[in-house]
Simulated scan of single mutants.
Amino acid sequence: MSTPSEAGNEGFEPELSAVIGERRQLMNLAYRMLGSVAEAEDAVQETYARWYAMSPARQEAVASPGAWLTTVASRVCLDVLGSARVRRERYVGEWIPEPLPDRSEWVGGRTDGGRDEPADPADRVTLDESVNMAFLVVLESMTPAERVTFILHDVFRYPFAEVAEIVGRSAPACRQLAASARRRLRDARAETGPAAGQGALVREFKEAWEAKDIGALIGLLDPEATMITDGGGLAGAALRPVEGGERVAQYLCHFADKVPDLVLLERTVNGRPGLVAQHAGVTVTVAAFGLAGDRVHRIWAVRNPEKLRPWPGSGGPGSGGPQSWGG
């Protein structure tokens, strides 16, 4: 097995450079497997901890450090996915994968002065169709083995024989897992919709929301539209999905009335046009959209401040903005 290494590590010894250069690849792999930047960072850190815990002799015996790191990271993610199901059963309200900003806007953390600090490029996740929110939400419905197998084979193109070694199944069993995962995705493809044209629709949606034009919002929403909000108990959010285009429009207009100074910004969310809501300069909500034809069919609105760390203006835990988003 081989993985693409990242350039730009000229200051290190060749062997060390090969290991460090896998970090971005591992972050891309782990985020798709876990749907969480924080959990992906932890998984990658655990992977490197296991590498450096080995003696130099054992490290030198590894024929392909990249393959070793990928195998370990995948197994760590497999374990995390197993325990995540239990944790998410105790999660307050709905759980949505962590949204990602455009690469140019990714924030790495906070300086001592409280300013946004640019992210390490190695921490950025490559944005493509395998990280759009509709895709990630369907991945959440898969079993851990299905998800890891599908991502390794269908997204990162590892042969089934190598996937089998990682997940501890036979190659034929992995083929079945991937086929099952593909079946789960077929229905979701319809609501993902083409990226072309989504920007104009989101812009119209933003303008209608700002104007509190409930009729215009209803016209832009599919009659069976659903809105899911994720506050994680740290920010106001509806504990259950809001279902039906008219109810979603009413919900949004009610919130606009409660928070008249909310600022809506058009931003890229997981590689597709979305909206960011800021209150008093703090990012309090990131919304991703799923389309059905020329209408909005799904809205995923993340308000949990712990999931907004990569976004400019994120306030961290306890700064979830207006609490009246729930209902």
Results as ranks from 00 to 15, higher is better:
residue 111 T to K: 06
residue 86 V to S: 13
residue 87 R to E: 10
residue 135 F to Y: 13
residue 176 Q to L: 10
residue 188 A to T: 15
residue 138 V to N: 06
residue 108 G to L: 02
residue 91 Y to R: 13
residue 78 L to F: 07
residue 158 Y to H: 14
residue 177 L to P: 00
residue 107 V to F: 03
residue 180 S to E: 14
residue 141 S to Q: 14
residue 105 E to A: 14
residue 175 R to C: 07
residue 149 T to P: 00
residue 131 V to H: 00
residue 170 S to A: 08
residue 156 F to W: 12
residue 175 R to T: 13
residue 144 P to H: 13
residue 70 T to I: 03
residue 146 E to P: 00
residue 141 S to H: 09
residue 172 P to S: 10
residue 70 T to F: 06
residue 64 S to Q: 11
residue 164 A to R: 07
residue 143 T to Y: 08
residue 79 D to S: 13
residue 160 F to A: 15
residue 129 E to V: 09
residue 79 D to A: 13
residue 128 D to T: 13
residue 150 F to Q: 01
residue 71 T to M: 08
residue 90 R to Y: 07
residue 90 R to D: 15
residue 139 L to A: 12
residue 186 R to C: 04
residue 86 V to M: 10
residue 183 R to P: 01
residue 183 R to F: 08
residue 67 A to P: 09
residue 76 V to N: 08
residue 84 A to V: 03
residue 57 A to Q: 14
residue 150 F to P: 11
residue 79 D to P: 00
residue 119 A to P: 01
residue 159 P to E: 12
residue 94 E to M: 11
residue 188 A to G: 11
residue 164 A to V: 05
residue 92 V to M: 12
residue 172 P to T: 03
residue 120 D to M: 02
residue 124 R to S: 05
residue 170 S to G: 11
residue 113 G to C: 03
residue 152 L to W: 04
residue 170 S to L: 07
residue 62 V to A: 08
